[in-house]
């Protein structure tokens, strides 16, 4: 019995379950009315079942079996090692990313600001508006232009030594919270930026995120390391200060270099 010519291509797809649901439904409706196609489906099903009965068509030779196992064992080991390495690299990258994110997330905004200002000064993007090494002259300039009433100290140099630091000049910066004064020093030819502003806003300085906190003369000095620079932040008498430099600020180069020593020659509480 011959199946309908127009349904012929559907017979195989139907038996092979390759028809879409709508096509399948349509074809089954046709089958109900067409004994020729039903007979063709029966014959085709029988043939496919008979073909499947001879599966597997060929047996794999034992030589190929042993060869495949011999080859695949070291291949499997190599894949597992690769997976472990890949997993380790991903974990390491995640830990590094988390560590960087955490360390940056904990850096106070004023440290980030001070570091950027210092970087811009180093690139020559913030030329100084006044140049002088006289503290009293710069104190007056700061009062007139930035409204900061303070007397810049002129720390003595230890006996028999030239003064370690040198005052270079100053510049006024406009920031969100009000004007900020940038004072630039040099120590051994290395620029040091000191940013000063009125502490109208509460400071977000905190021990968390700081590399160290030093207590000196009743003040807390927070040391941060950010983008390859070191920043010391502190507040005193209504002003907040941020000092940025690439010089090492702990242990070997304590503040006594600039500020001079007390009776002991060393500020109290500062790391040795």
């Amino acid at each position: 019995m011959r199946a309908c010519q127009e349904q012929r291509w559907r017979l195989h797809a139907y038996v092979d379950r390759e028809l879409a649901a709508s096509e399948r439904l349509e074809f089954e409706q046709h089958l109900e009315a067409c004994p020729a196609c039903r007979e063709a489906i029966r014959e085709l099903t029988e043939l496919v079942s008979r073909l499947r009965a001879v599966h597997p068509l060929y047996e794999v030779p034992p030589s190929l079996q042993s060869w495949a196992r011999e080859q695949l064992q070291p291949f499997g080991r190599m894949l597992r090692v690769r997976r472990w390495i890949a997993a380790a690299v991903v974990c390491l990258a995640f830990l590094v990313a988390m560590s960087l994110w955490r360390s940056h997330a904990e850096i106070p905004a004023e440290v980030v600001f001070a570091t950027r200002v210092h970087q811009r000064y180093l690139r020559g993007e913030l030329p100084l508006q006044v140049r002088s090494d006289r503290p009293e002259l710069l104190s007056q300039w700061l009062y007139q232009h930035c409204g900061l009433g303070l007397q810049l100290p002129n720390y003595p140099s230890p006996k028999g030594h030239t003064k370690a630091y040198r005052l270079i000049g100053a510049r006024k910066l406009d920031a969100k919270g009000g004007p900020v004064a940038l004072l630039v020093y040099e120590l051994d030819g290395e620029p040091i930026s000191l940013l000063m502003r009125t502490a109208a806003q509460p400071s977000d300085l905190r021990a968390q995120g700081a590399s160290a906190v030093y207590r000196l003369g009743g003040l807390d000095f927070h040391l941060y390391r950010y983008r390859g620079f070191q920043t010391i932040c502190w507040s005193d008498k209504g002003l907040s200060y941020s000092l940025v430099t690439s010089l090492r600020l702990d242990g070997s180069n304590p503040c006594v270099l600039c500020h001079g020593g007390g009776q002991s020659g060393q500020p109290q509480g500062w790391p040795q």
Binding site: Y14, V15, D16, R17, E32, R38, T45, S49, R52
Partner: peptide, 13 residues
């Protein structure tokens, strides 16, 4: 009416 269900030839694959 005859409803011919699709043969299940796939259970062994």
């Amino acid at each position: 009416m005859v409803n011919t269900p699709a043969p299940d030839l796939f259970h062994g694959f």
